[in-house]
Nucleic acid binder design. Sequence first.
DNA 1: GAACAAGAGCGTACCGTTTCGCGAACACGT
DNA 2: ACGTGTTCGCGAAACGGTACGCTCTTGTTC
Lengths: 335, 335
Amino acid sequence: MAATIRDIREQTGLSLATISKYLNGGNVLPENREKIETAIRDLHYEVNEIARGLVTNKTKTIGMIVYDIESMFSGVLIRHVGDCLRKAGYALLVCDSCNDEKIEADNVRFLINKKVEGMVVIPVSWKEDFLLPTREKKIPVVLMDRSFAVSDFDCVKIDNRTAALRATNHLLGCGHKKIAIIASRVEYTGWERYKGFREAMVQAGLSVPEEYCRIGAHTIEFGHDSMLKLLELPDRPTAVLMTNYETSLGAVMAVNESGFDCPGDISMLGFDDLIMSHVVKPKLCMVVQPMKEMCEKAVELVLTQIDSKEERPPIELSMGTTLRDGNSIKPLQGK
Amino acid sequence: MAATIRDIREQTGLSLATISKYLNGGNVLPENREKIETAIRDLHYEVNEIARGLVTNKTKTIGMIVYDIESMFSGVLIRHVGDCLRKAGYALLVCDSCNDEKIEADNVRFLINKKVEGMVVIPVSWKEDFLLPTREKKIPVVLMDRSFAVSDFDCVKIDNRTAALRATNHLLGCGHKKIAIIASRVEYTGWERYKGFREAMVQAGLSVPEEYCRIGAHTIEFGHDSMLKLLELPDRPTAVLMTNYETSLGAVMAVNESGFDCPGDISMLGFDDLIMSHVVKPKLCMVVQPMKEMCEKAVELVLTQIDSKEERPPIELSMGTTLRDGNSIKPLQGK
DNA sequence: GAACAAGAGCGTACCGTTTCGCGAACACGT
DNA sequence: ACGTGTTCGCGAAACGGTACGCTCTTGTTC
C-alpha cells in the first residue's frame, strides 16, 4: 500500500543506500537529491519508523509513569514533558499507576516491553525495587517530584525541606503559634516537608502537639478527614500547613463543608498551586513549584543519559519554590 | 544483547517456524513445548514487538488526542480508555491539543506517522478537516464527547439536548423563571445543550432575555467573566445553568469571589462532575456523564473497526445522563 | 496392508530500513 | 603522469520476527 524506499529506487534508479543516506541527512549529489525529492513527493513516501527502529534498535519513544492521571498535577507535568520531548523528536507513552504499586510495577514492564528508550517516573512506591528491571536493560530513568531515601536514579524535584520551612516561617511571621500540619507518610517528599516544618517550629522555640501532626495518605480523603479532625480538637490550631496538592484540596473541602471560616477561624497554607487557588474562596496562599522548568530539566536529563553511553553517578536536581500570596492567612496580634 | 528467537533455535534445535508458532499460540508437541519454555526461561527471551510489527504491519497501539490534558475531564477519559485498551492488549499513545487547532492537526499527523491502528479523539476544531488524513490511510477513528454537525465518524457522547432540557426543567421545577445559561459556542456539544435549554424554556412559556445567554469559549475564564456579568445585571437571574466543566468551574470561582451567596442569591446547576462538586461550597448540583461506560464503548467501537475490514456507516452512540443532587439550588415559592 | 487425512515441523522468502566495506570518479599539487 | 585524498554511490548483509507451502509422521479405515 504505502510507498517504500524500494519504490523510490525504481523511480530514481538510485540504490537503497543512497536514498537512505539522503533520508538521514547525508550528502548526495544535487542532481540525485532532486530526483529523490520529486519521487518522495510523487509517491507520498514516508519513512517507516517501525522498520527503522528494527535496525537502529531505537524507538524514539520515552515512557512516562504518573502516580495518578486524574490529578491535575500529573496533567501539567505530562503536558510539559510531552512538549519538550516533541521538540527533540521523541514521542511520549503515558502510563497511569492509579496510585497502585502493583499497577506501577506492571507499567515498568509494559514500557520495557514497548522498548522505550527512557522513562520519566513520578513514583507511587516508597522503594525503588519496581524500577530494577530498567537497570537490567540499562534504560535511563528520571524521577520527578518524588525520590527515594537512598536513590540510584536521576531526580528532579523541589527543595522540599526549605519550601516547608519557609512556609512555616511565613505562618510564624503572621503571628501563628498553634500550627498543624497535614503531610503524606509514604514517600521522601512528604517526610522532607514534615522535617522542614519541625525545624522551623523548633527554631521558633515552639513545640508541636502530637494531635497537630496528621501524617497519612497522599489523598483528597486524607486531607479532608484530617482537617475535620483538626477542627474538632478542643484546642484548635490557628493555622494549618497542607504539604501536597491532594491534601490541600481535601482540607479546603473540609473547611468549606464544616461551617468554619477561613481565614477567620483558621488560616491555611497549601502546596502545589494549580487552578485550585482560584476556585476556592478565599484565595489560598500556596507554595508553588516551577513545574515547567522541572519538566525541561527532567527531559534534558533523560536525553543526555540516552546519548552518552558512559555511566555517571545519578544527578539530583533540587529546584527552588516561591510562596504565592493569597488571603487565607489571618495576621494574629502575637505574643 | 537480548535473546532472539534464533537463540532459542540454538538451544532447542527446533526451527524458527516452530518457535514462532508456539509464540503465537499454535500447537506444538508437548516435548517441544517443554524445550521452548525452558529455553525462554533460561535466556529471558521476550518477543520483539518491533520486529513483529514490521511483518504483521500492526503496532498494537491506539492514539488518543485530547483537547486539554490539564483538564480533569481529559484525565478521567484517558484513564478509562487506557484501562480498556490494556485489557485488549493495546497500548495508548496520548496527545494533547492544548485547545489549539493547529496542534491538533499536528497530532493527527504525528499519530499516523507512529502507525497507530486507531484513534480516539476529543476534538478542538469545529470541522472534521483535520481528520481527513486518517481517511486516506483508512485509520479507524472514534470521537468522544464532541462531534461535528455532519459527521462521518463514529462517536460516543451523551444526549446533550435531553440532558440540558432536563436540567432546565429541574430549575423550573424549583420555581425558577429567570434562568441564565453559560454555554460554549464552538462545537456541536455546546450548541445542543443550548438548544435543550431553549426548548425547555419555550415549553414552560418563558422567554429568555438576550443578556441571559452567554455563549462563548469553552474556558474557565469565559465561565468566570460570564458569571460576573450576570451578577452585575440590574435584573439578575435567579439561577444559572453552566453547560460544561470549564465554565462551571469558572462560574463557581466568580460567585465565590463576588461576595454573592449560592444558593442564597443565585442558584447554580453545572455539568460534568469531577471532584469539583465536593471542593466547592455549597455542593454543586450537576449533570453527570457515564464516563466509564462511554470509554468502554469508544474502545469497543475502535477495536471492532480495526477487526472488521468492511466499511460500515458511522455509529453515533448517545448515552443518558443523571442529575446529581447538591444544595446549590434554592427552591423558590413561585407564581 | 494400502490409501488417506490430519498434525507437526521445516526452509525460506519477506517486511522496510540502516550500515559497512569497497570501488569509481574526480580534484589537486607536484 | 602520478600518487593522494575526498566525495559519492553501490551491493549485500543484517535486524528479529511471521507465514506460506512443503515434507514427514502418525493413526484410522476399509
